[in-house]
Nucleic acid binder design. Sequence first.
DNA 1: ATATATTCTATAAACTTAGTAGAGTTTAAT
DNA 2: ATTAAACTCTACTAAGTTTATAGAATATAT
Lengths: 146, 146
Amino acid sequence: MMSMKCKYALKALTCLGKNVGKGYMQTAFIAESENIPKKFLEQILLELKHAHMVSSKQGTGGGYHLLKNPKEISVADVYRLFDGAIALVPCVSINFYEKCDDCKNEISCVMRDEFIKIREGARIVMSKTTIQSFLNASKTTKTKNN
Amino acid sequence: MMSMKCKYALKALTCLGKNVGKGYMQTAFIAESENIPKKFLEQILLELKHAHMVSSKQGTGGGYHLLKNPKEISVADVYRLFDGAIALVPCVSINFYEKCDDCKNEISCVMRDEFIKIREGARIVMSKTTIQSFLNASKTTKTKNN
DNA sequence: ATATATTCTATAAACTTAGTAGAGTTTAAT
DNA sequence: ATTAAACTCTACTAAGTTTATAGAATATAT
């Protein structure tokens, strides 16, 4: 399961994705339309800014906009930013590698190769799914239900 | 990332898998050979027993053995037992379904279909990987390094 | 009886999550 | 210049989870 923070971030990015080319969108607007606590969202947007996924402008008429193309922001990217490793165990993580405390010998670990396969299964599908995927979904059959 | 508990459980099950047909294996033995705190492992084995994955016998010469075929215990099964849902969000979980607090309308949620795809990616590979997969790994090239 | 080994419940320290609070900074409009 | 709008940053906190540890109880074989 992903954290609420990560989920909120994906919702916020998708919201910003709908606004591409239309200037800045305010935190308060995103918070209300996506049902996210405003003060919590402020923190999240700030983290997304520091990760260079969004850009911001202060003051009246300010707000946030996407800094990258929606298809260049994957669920994997956002997950890594807020929740860390995609891998099930640290010793097979690409971006958050750490030695397992309890493993005597990494090379001889019988679970490692299998955990790498599992990581690849998750990593590939999470990398393929982007903010654009969510935007596409909103353009098809779903529109009637909003 | 999976919890230590889940990882320990997989290691313990694999250890028991090596002993199939050879009677009972003691907690103390598993704890030492897999580098797992013994008292913690006791709890874990008990949970595995309650989930009918292992069987036990008390007293002298007692211990644990697998109750199922190693290829019928998947990483997905063990993950669900100790860490819960495989899905990234509760509203697309098969075994731990819950409505998302922040979602106004599940049907119109633009992320849902994509999260289902991600869940399937993870679920399939985690279901395919079993205790037998780990046992197979230990029988091939790895043996020399143990 | 006694030693062995699982069973069960309670407890606790450390860490993480999901926020909240508030002061500060920047910008646009008046 | 002043004011209001909006982001920026740091600190804090309550609740929950994780990773164990402790100890008494129960069952079994010799």
